[in-house]
Design a protein around this nucleic acid. Structure first.
Lengths: 194, 194
DNA sequence: ATTATTTCTTGATTCACATCAATGAATTGG
DNA sequence: CCAATTCATTGATGTGAATCAAGAAATAAT
């Protein structure tokens, strides 16, 4: 059940069997069906979730009731509202399953415990945070410098796998566009390229 | 010379005098005058800079030669292109001084050394990265959900100090607006509020 | 001081994208 | 398998911000 989770960790750190046993005792395996929430706006985020199967998304809802997708998390990715998770503030994010999914959940208490009990996990998180920061930095760079068309094609190139599994209006939402606009961008590209 | 730097670190971790001595041997103190670059597009980012006096900014230049400010860093802040610093890739960022400034520079080699020699520094960076990630997350949230007017007033509320020291067209640049648009937003607000 | 440079404001016009509206295609669920 | 949602496309219209242009105000330099 935890194989994918341990594989992920092993990509960056080395875990002993004893370490794995400690993890097993402190994490929770959970299934989510399509559309089911992991976190809902107004709650405190209780978990960092590792996706071992399926796909989740996190998104905001603005005053006009438009959804803005912040992150897609297919198998092998983590998803959470880290701010809410760490500071125990109310979240303004929603996290739900785009496909029926399987998760490994780490609660706040478990997270703290595991970082102490397994120093390598602390190191892993160090790298995760650093990497996540760099990724967001790049996303902001793209938001500022790329045209709508370029943003879309770049997304297709970097995450072709994800883009194929996700409905188009969610891609639009991730890019900060309306579905109509994305549809028009795609049409324009299809005339250009092939 | 390093007082501000040590104060900053001491906000989150505890440093012994021995630790401080190690730092002193591995960091570089540098002055920058107004407009002087710390990092220029196309170079590899060699340092993480702590600003002990003055203010720096990082910014991108897009194809149309428009500048987009990513970060302001007044005294007490760090600034760098972390991606370039870590992976030793060419940077597409510029970092320069908005005011004449004093810096404490940590090179890549020093950074690695210091994290090993001073475990508390590793912990400090863990928290820095985590905090930086959360901040960027919030910035993206605001980009998606707030109106231009709201983005501006929020910025004024959170960083009144910085906003007073920085020319208006740079605030516009940070917000992803033209100076003209920001000027009009301000006019509208001045009619509304007072 | 006075010239030069940078910064800010205001107006007229253009443009990219949102919004509104309707229809067709594709999934999903009973 | 068929009804019901969900999803994607297309057209007409509206809007917020960019662009272009010019002048005023403020800072800096000689």
């Amino acid at each position: 059940m935890l194989d994918h989770f341990f594989n992920k960790l092993s990509g960056n750190i080395t875990l002993t069997d004893a370490d794995k046993a400690v993890f097993s005792q402190h994490v929770i395996v959970k299934k989510l069906r399509k559309r089911q929430y992991l976190l809902q706006d107004g709650e405190i985020c209780k978990y960092v979730a590792f996706v071992s199967k399926g796909m989740l998304r996190s998104y905001l809802v603005d005053k006009k009731n438009n959804e803005h997708i912040i992150q897609f998390a297919p198998e092998g990715w983590f998803i959470s509202d880290l701010n809410s998770f760490i500071s125990e503030d109310y979240s303004n994010l929603n996290i739900d399953a785009i496909e029926s999914s399987e998760l490994v959940l780490v609660s706040r208490a478990a997270h703290i415990h595991l970082e102490q009990a397994v120093p390598e996990f602390f190191k892993f998180n160090y790298m995760q945070y650093r990497g996540a920061y760099i990724s967001l930095q790049k996303r902001i760079n793209d938001m500022f410098t790329l045209s709508t068309e370029e943003k879309y094609t770049k997304l297709l190139n970097i995450y072709p796998d994800i883009m194929q599994r996700v409905p188009q209006h969610m891609i639009a939402s991730y890019l900060g566009l309306t579905p109509e606009t994305l549809s028009r961008v795609r049409k324009k590209l299809s005339v250009k390229k092939p």
